[in-house]
Design a protein around this nucleic acid. Structure first.
Lengths: 190, 190
DNA sequence: ACCGGTCTATATCGATCGCTCTAGATGCCG
DNA sequence: CGGCATCTAGAGCGATCGATATAGACCGGT
């Protein structure tokens, strides 16, 4: 079954988000996932790096889907983005400010790491940026402007999550999110 | 001499910024700093956590000073903030996109870590936020608005640095920085 | 010359790291 | 039932982790 494999990836996503890539031990992963140690290297012969790449790809798809849903459910992109900020504030607070974005955490741990991991981080971010930019373009913004604003949206969200986690306070997410919402609202002309 | 101690802290700042807290080994630190292993536990009897706290305090002061200088040199806060984004783009690119913010990296590694470390991260961020907010207040913004915009500025900068590092591209920093500059310019009424 | 505190130098500790190996379940196909 | 690929199980590898212990170098003050 691929059940064990998917459990490993899901657990790794949570673990990387909470403690980073370097800070997460494989033993802790198998324990926490309830998965046998032998299976780890059966599914990921490439070891931790391959597991990391798979985890980043999973996270990229999972949160990409969340972005898509947000834009589908809320017609106004500015409002959809705001709800992502607001939603993350609730999620992080609900988890005691322990969880975070696994892609950002891995990016910051990856100085001398596998180049494939670096590429996996970049690809996850690129996926999200493309979805955001597309939603802005669909509402009349020219591609170059949409791409630049997507950078603003994602950068601010990732950064605000860090500030919120450090302080244990949703204010950075809410303040920065509201400002980004206003920028988008003005750019979209409403 | 405190020379060795300061060399350790400086090297730790670079190391944490590049590979995170968990990803940086103390052996690598002493080697890279050219400092004797015995000195490490002489200056930091509390071990890695104490060294980490000292490093975060140092980074908080160092970059706090950079923020102060930026606002002192450039009268328009919007322009000063923009120059910080631009400057970071140059610094990161010059370092091959390996270096990053040690405070953000430590924050993302600190799930089950020492509570003192978490507090040290929060304090470094709070220092920077206060400086940014003060500069905005000095230009006529009410305190609550200045605080909210400081959240936007710092969150966006930290997040954009992550995106830029992952992609090896200054565009996130430049795009997001320009957008933040425009927001500040509008709020300050020019 | 001697002493006391500061700092350096190594050798070593147990624990844990990522990883490998072999043996045994398990399940699907003939 | 037998044969084969998939998956599990866990002992154990060398390396490295953070941390400790102890001995010596250095140096100003008396």
């Amino acid at each position: 079954m691929t059940d064990t494999r998917s459990r490993l990836v899901r657990t790794a996503e949570a673990l990387f988000g909470a403690q980073g890539y370097a800070g997460s031990a494989l033993k802790q992963l198998t324990d926490s996932a309830g998965a046998p140690w032998g299976s780890l290297y059966h599914f990921f012969p490439g070891g931790k790096a391959e597991l990391g790449a798979a985890t980043l790809a999973f996270a990229g798809e999972k949160y990409g889907e969340a972005w898509r849903r947000a834009f589908a459910r809320t017609p106004d992109p500015a409002e959809a983005v705001w709800r992502m900020f607001e939603g993350q504030a609730r999620v992080l607070a609900g988890g005691g400010w322990r969880a975070g974005c696994p892609v950002a955490a891995t990016t910051l741990d990856m100085a001398g790491l596998d180049a494939a991991l670096r590429a996996a981080c970049a690809e996850a971010f690129a996926t999200w940026l493309a979805i955001i930019a597309e939603a802005l373009e669909a509402n009349g913004l020219p591609p170059s402007r949409a791409g630049a604003l997507a950078h603003l949206v994602l950068a601010t969200l990732e950064g605000a999550m860090i500030l919120a986690r450090a302080s244990g306070d949703p204010a950075p997410l809410l303040d920065a999110g509201a400002a980004v919402r206003d920028v988008l609202g003005r750019e979209l002309g409403r």
